[in-house]
Nucleic acid binder design. Structure first.
Lengths: 330, 330
DNA sequence: TTGTATGCGTTATCAC
DNA sequence: GTGATAACGCATACAA
């Protein structure tokens, strides 16, 4: 069923059918009624491929989501939908694997979907460095800092990872801990992990602590958090506190501690990062840095809209974080 | 940059360029080399819209995913990618909201993407009832039973929800519990919840228990699990065990119990359903019914492939579940 | 081995 | 207000 069939069935021409479908003016009430009825009757669904192929601009924002199981991204996405619902822009979301090159995806999809703007949920600076020059429309990188790249059409919105990690570690120190182990990502690869490490070290330095009792790295996952903690214990490191760079790693670490006969927070304190839902339900309730998905989403949306509509220059902003004191630190 | 530009730049015709792009035979080595080089040089990315619009069949499987934050679906998806990687079929994944009509989406996307088969991750029987007749290619509904619909091209793969719930509740009874509260979904709406309720009741009946001490329903979420448990306690119901129809509800319920001064499992036992990763890391480790995402994925893939390639008739199968004994039941 | 021409389903620009 | 008709970028049957 195509608009051609629809035209034949209703006795009108494809032009009129198309106009009705797109709510254009200059269509008689009668035609509109009859064609709408036929659409309903035949269950016609218009072919977006052909539509987009033909259109020069699509009133849409393309959202590129890195990874399928990131709870923070899901939260941001949800808020994004709400925010854009009232703007007249549609949201087109594309997911891809963690280790895909998001900018290459973006280049292809820009040619195809002809969106007005781009929203990257997660991304790698190196990829932008290499291919972002092929993109000519406004874009915002969310949860990763793009200020050093200095592209005139690429903004970024992040939590201040350095300050947040500093805050978390400072809190641990304030609680009397001086032997602090860190579990994080590979800071050779992940910009985020590196910044969180920098913040952690700064906090330690200020208090005259020479460095972390141990640093173990892995993916942000339960399994790797567990494995990192195990490794740390096996190496004979028994810090009194752990700063994990993600809630999931914190939870994995707590399980490992528990299985080693240690209690949290009585024997070892653990602080996480992210403020995922589970952190509020976990026992013990996680002490963690809460990133505000809502705020990240809203600021990104505003930034992008300003760039599209007012041709505002690229900006790089950070949104506030919050230390949520749970039951996992003593 | 289009294949036309590419043709002009290389001095070949669009036909030859297209043939190179699609790895067709009958292209000279020289042309292939030159055109490939040009593709690289200009960073050409071909327009999938036009490609699919033109193609009669796309060697792809369309996966329709209901909801963005379902961990079981993420697991299934991952396995699906592995399985199809070796088959020559590509996997095209589309996400949509929980309350969208997945079959309507499918109808539209079939017209657009012209896939060989459909894989629904989650779905509602009523939607299939209404619109599936518009779909003519093989499809498999995963995690929901479609046997009663009797469409000749619609298979389904599920965990046997009735038996699994029966198993869970039987276990609670075997542990000595006779006052069992149930937290689940709205069984007026959700087929799955209804089947799990049926199984629960069957187990109780066999043991001479007249019915659940209480039944509270909500979405499968931490918040609603928490709220259900709170409601149950507020109503003066204090069962010695809770069967939650999802792990997330179980975790929410445990948090509510804890805040009411009750310990799990000492005062109240809790059994979940799903076997999510978090169930293994939660403290106490959740006793739960493990659904095998891997198995669900593999059986679905096989079923679909058989329908596509051997024109096998629709089948409705269940995959084994497993009661994972954690620390949350006593 | 290569080039040309046609059409996929739609929107948009013309005439009428 | 409506109906032809020309693109959009690509794949492909057919011609050369």
């Amino acid at each position: 069923m195509t608009i051609k069939d629809l035209a034949r069935e209703t006795g009108y021409s494809v032009g009129t059918v198309s106009r009705v479908l797109n709510n254009h003016p200059n269509v008689s009430e009668k035609a509109r009624r009859e064609i709408t009825a036929a659409v309903e009757r035949f269950g016609f669904e218009r072919n977006e491929n052909a539509r987009i192929l033909k259109q020069r601009h699509n009133e849409g924002i393309l959202v590129l989501v890195k990874g399928r199981k990131n709870e923070l991204f899901a939260l941001i996405l949800e808020r994004l939908q709400q925010v854009f619902a009232s703007t007249g822009y549609s949201l087109l979301m594309e997911y891809f694997d963690e280790n895909d090159n998001e900018v290459r995806h973006a280049v292809r999809l820009c040619g195809e979907k002809k969106p007005q703007g781009l929203l990257f949920l997660g991304g790698n600076c190196a990829n932008f460095q290499a291919d972002f020059n092929k993109i000519s429309i406004p874009a915002v990188l969310v949860t990763d800092d793009a200020s050093k790249l200095e592209f005139p059409t690429l903004s970024s919105v992040t939590t201040d990872d350095t300050a947040a990690a500093d805050c978390a570690v400072s809190y641990l120190i304030a609680c009397g801990h001086r032997s602090i182990g860190i579990i994080g990502g590979d800071f050779q690869i992940s910009d985020t992990s590196r910044m969180r490490l920098t913040g952690s070290l700064a906090a330690m330095k200020r208090s005259g602590i020479v460095g972390p009792a141990a640093y173990e790295s892995g993916w942000y996952s339960y399994e790797d958090g567990y494995a990192c903690m195990e490794r740390m214990l096996r190496n004979g490191n028994e810090p009194t506190a752990i700063f994990a760079m993600s809630d999931v790693q914190a939870i994995g670490a707590i399980r490992a501690l528990r299985e080693a006969g240690k209690r949290v927070p009585e024997d070892v304190s653990v602080c996480g990062f992210d403020g995922l839902l589970i952190s509020r339900y976990f026992l013990p309730r996680l002490t963690t840095i809460c990133q505000s998905g809502e705020e990240l989403a809203e600021r990104s949306a505003r930034l992008l809209l300003d760039m599209i509509e007012k041709h505002s220059p690229a900006r790089h902003i950070t949104v506030p974080f919050r230390l949520s004191k749970g039951e996992s630190v003593k």
